[in-house]
Amino acid sequence: MTALMIINMRNILSVIMLGGIYSLISAILFVVLDAVDVAFTEAAVGAGISTVLFLSAFAITGKHHDLKRRNHFPALLAVLVMGAGLMYSTLDMPAWGDAEAPVHQHVAPRYLEDSYAEVGVPNIVTSVLASYRGFDTLGEVTVVFTALIAVLLLLGAIREDEDQS
């Protein structure tokens, strides 16, 4: 629903605020789907930090006009075709909540049964994140570091321009 509101919103500030609300609602949805750790992260990062970043970038860019309408039939067509294709492909998915689905057969049972003995942390998500899939987390830190460098390069260049002029 919030997403639909965002499509129709003209004012950029309200789009950003609705983006934050949308993140918060999806965090609630993650709690309902048993993913409490993901919900924490989404509420803090998605609804919190992300909105702050958007607002500060919005403040830096200064003057704004409201959005204009244009012909959006081609976009609508492309999106509908993609949506129909994805809907069709979900017909092959296992039923939602099915404990016998292939997702639950591979390494997940081992995490559930042995991780407490092997790692000693009751929260399985934490033990998988920090121990079994530690390299993923290393990669994640690398990505964040690269992004930090990119942002500093982009914004630092602006500051140099100002110094010269």
Binding site: L33, D34, A35, D37, V38, T41, E42, V45, G46, V103, H104, V107, A108, Y111, L112, I124, V125, V128, L129, R133, D136, T137, G139, E140, V143, V144
Partner: peptide, 14 residues
């Protein structure tokens, strides 16, 4: 519930 997707998505959010 399966913890593996949670871990992957935690990384993806960051």
């Amino acid at each position: 519930s399966n913890p593996l997707p949670h871990v992957l998505i935690l990384t993806a959010i960051v």
